[in-house]
Amino acid sequence: MEKKTKAAIIAIVLIVIAWAALAAAKPSKEVMMSKCSPEIQKQIEAEKNSTRKRITVTYNSLGFINYCAFSSSSKNADGASKEVYVGFAGKVYSAKEGPAKFVSQMVNYTYRMLGCGENVFHGAKLTILLTTLTVLIGFILSIFLALGKISKNVIISKLCGAYIFFFRGTPLLIQLFVVYFAIPGVFGFAWKDLFSAPDTEAVYMGAFVAALIAFSLNSAAYCAEIVRAAIQSIDKGQNEAARALGLTYGQTMRKVIIPQSVRRMIPPICNEFIMILKDASLVFAISLMDITTISKNIMTNELSYMVFIPALIIYLIITAFFTFIFNKIEKKLSVYE
């Protein structure tokens, strides 16, 4: 094994150990809950059996740090309507001001933007799921589109060309609107009715499926040009050799041309992936809660501009992770060069 790989493994192991140790030392939920002021505790006790609660208790556990907030809708005499605590390494800190307040905000915002405690159609989970599925479906569709476009059959070629022209020539947001609003309008159905889940969940599922369809169709058009270019960059002699050996068109494509062109597609497909990752924020327009929507909501509702720090970092981490994966794939496919 290389020295570099060894060092990386040691570093990863150390980080995991430190993480586990800090997570074990983290104050428990009960400890966090018991830290609030006597007045709030009294209020919580008083409201224990009532259905209308004035006190909202928020508890977020994020890795080795946790966050607890108590906010009251009824103003106290001293105006203190909110108490925030951060638990870290066995201690609980009041996060009213200073660095503790900053940390508490970061923890809370990150927790919400990652979509923790929510189903898969929230936050970073939604962004990653939508992007990955979009690129996967778009790429598969694009192979057919690309083969169609370079086909000798003029009708197929023109049809595929028109598809690509249409989807590259109109804004993704409008395509999303068409799929989400116009198509159900014309055909008389609602996306959420396609799912037999509780209402709010069905809305998210329906919106997700609509977004996936719109994004995949759009991405297929862009990927088709990538695939076409990669296929046409393969030496003509490969095609001739395969034909001289008696391989059919389909076999030539599957066994000879596409395996060679896939490697050349990886860098531009990675680029397309990153573009979609960011375009995925357009789902705000159909009421899906992705990273961008959540951070915008936090900014407008809580007037906190700090929210953009974790938002940007989350996007960067996702991008870095997938770039790493694509590089690995490219290296793996390059063994024969």
Binding site: G246, L247, Y336, E337
Partner: peptide, 19 residues
């Protein structure tokens, strides 16, 4: 015009196996 993504053996085997 050998197939660069296949080994020497795979190059020779490709057509008999598939055709």
């Amino acid at each position: 015009n050998l197939f660069p993504h296949l080994t020497v053996l795979e190059n020779v085997m490709l057509a008999p196996v598939n055709v």
